[in-house]
Design a protein around this nucleic acid. Structure first.
Length: 514
DNA sequence: ATAGGGTTAG
């Protein structure tokens, strides 16, 4: 028999939750537990759910401990709610510990775990789990497939994504806007806008997020005209544009460098549509202006923003500095970035390259010390290729792959052809590049080149090659891959840590803006 | 009854 006070506490908490006042719900829960409430599993689930929504790990963990004491932690519902709490707070190891201890796991628990890994920057673990689930005889359903697709998007693993979605019935996909969004996003971000478009057209239920994903997908891949037209169609079909629609529009303008249109959309958004720009919108504008070379205006926009600039906004300005070779401004920006994300080694490396390039050896040395002192570790460069459903990874300094010798041979062979075409390998790292620790052969054997060599050895001539890497493509590799695409007469798609490059016949889809 | 999902600027 439940204690009556538990029932009324629960009712109160639930009422706050239903009213969308999650923070207050958590506050009430804290009071309830402090007053010695004996929780039942229903209450615990509700409270854990609320804590997850506001990422209140401290309260959530206290509740989870209380549940353990009460002997209700074994409930699948309670455990799943705790797992979700950890996922939402980015505590994947703790989430995994809860997951591993669960005796019965249903599709919800698996789905939460797969999705959690995917959204927290562990896409490979997400896919591992997705396959482990099937090995245990569970049929993949919508929720786990959404998580798997999201992981594939991050990995650029197009075939695995296709396979994952192929496990569902076609109807299930076309009737489910959540799945549709994940699928459209995956195709677009893997450089396959055509297939994204096909899915979009076939979808039977399209909510605003589906439309926005398609608009953004088009804008990011250089189909800005279609993106603009789609927004028109969207309005005609009675949808109201929202803040994310404008992200897509502004991105489209950025990709083609049409500053005037971008400024117009930005104005219309606030004045006509009464949407107040978030930091993301300002970021798009900074990006748009910076790429167009209007660095001062972009800098001014950051100063005038009603909110504090974050790393992304400064990053956009930095991007402009790179394109327009403005080392002085870049120095200021990088200092800001180091303040904002002191853990990001890329910023230190880039700044140190700028110093070295202008002969400021002392500054460079000082920076290196600073980096060491703050315990920042460089992210080892790594690239990977998907082949027949298996992800082959190539890390710096790792020659353990069975085809290793052949890959280096292939690279040498390509190198000779490239030389004939006038390619001069850069032996020094360029000012704004971030990989400088690959000592083997200066830049000649960067991971993405190794990965491409691997792909050339394992695919049919002319077949599209897809490589994904964890850092930015360096300028030398970018030039080299353009030439390789001409030599092999095939398409090479390289996914960066933030965009993709589609190389074909000596040309790249990013128009050398990256 | 009670738990889980998609898009979002460098």
């Amino acid at each position: 028999m439940l204690h009556p006070s538990t029932v009324s506490w629960t009712a109160l908490i639930t009422a706050y939750m239903d009213a969308g006042r999650v923070q207050e719900a958590v506050g009430v829960a804290r009071k309830a537990f402090a007053s010695g409430m004996r929780p039942d599993s229903f209450t615990v689930v509700r409270v854990l759910n609320a804590c997850a929504r506001v990422t209140d790990l401290v309260t959530g963990e206290a509740v989870w401990r209380a549940a353990e004491q009460e002997g209700i932690a074994g409930s699948m519902f309670v455990a799943t709610a705790a797992l979700d709490l950890y996922v939402k707070c980015g505590e994947m190891e703790k989430a995994r510990a809860v997951f591993d201890r669960m005796q019965n796991k249903d599709a919800v628990a698996w789905g939460a775990m797969v999705g959690g890994y995917a959204s927290s920057g562990h896409p490979r673990e997400a896919l591992e789990l997705f396959f482990a689930m099937q090995a245990e005889g569970m049929r993949p359903e919508c929720y786990t497939v959404v998580g798997a697709l999201s992981a594939c998007t991050r990995l650029g693993a197009l075939d695995l994504g296709r396979r994952a979605v192929g496990m569902l019935h076609c109807d299930e996909v076309l009737d489910n806007p959540v799945l549709g969004t994940a699928l459209i996003d995956m195709y677009a971000k893997c450089g396959n806008t055509g297939e994204a478009w096909t899915v979009f057209q076939q979808m039977r239920k399209r909510d605003i997020i589906v439309w926005n994903a398609m608009i953004l997908g088009l804008g990011m891949t250089g189909h800005e005209k279609i993106a603009f037209a789609l927004v028109g169609q969207m309005e005609k079909s009675g949808m109201t544009l929202n803040d994310n629609t404008f992200i897509g529009l502004l991105c489209s303008c950025t990709h083609t460098g049409i500053v005037r249109d971008g400024q117009r959309y930005f104005r219309n958004m606030t004045q006509l549509y009464r949407i107040s720009p978030r930091i993301e919108h300002h970021g798009c504008m900074v990006d748009l202006l910076s790429r167009a070379g209007l660095l001062e205006e972009a800098h001014q926009l950051i100063e005038d923003m009603p909110m504090q600039a974050n790393a992304v906004v400064w990053g956009a300005l930095l991007g402009g500095c790179k394109i327009h070779r403005n080392a002085d401004l870049a120095e200021d920006v990088l200092k800001q970035l180091i303040q904002l994300e002191p853990w990001n080694s890329g910023n230190y490396v880039m700044l140190s390259n700028i110093y070295s390039n202008s002969g400021r050896w002392e500054d460079a040395a000082k920076l290196r010390l600073e980096m060491k002192a703050s315990g920042v570790e460089k992210v080892p460069a790594s690239s990977w290729v998907e082949l027949a459903g298996k992800v082959h990874e190539f890390r710096v300094g790792d020659k353990s792959h069975p085809l290793s010798d052949k890959m280096y041979e292939k690279l040498d062979e390509l190198g000779m052809e490239m030389k004939i075409m006038g390619y001069k390998p850069t032996t020094e790292v360029v000012m704004f590049d971030i990989e400088d620790e690959e000592k083997e052969h200066t830049l000649v054997h960067h991971r993405e080149k190794i990965a491409i060599a691997f792909s050339l050895l394992t695919t049919e001539p002319g077949e599209t090659i897809r490589v994904t890497k964890n850092l930015r493509v360096c300028s030398d590799c970018h030039t080299a891959i353009k030439l390789i695409s001409r030599i092999t007469n095939g398409e090479i798609i390289v996914r960066d840590n933030n965009r993709f490059h589609c190389f074909r016949d000596g040309h790249c889809s990013c128009n050398d803006y990256w």
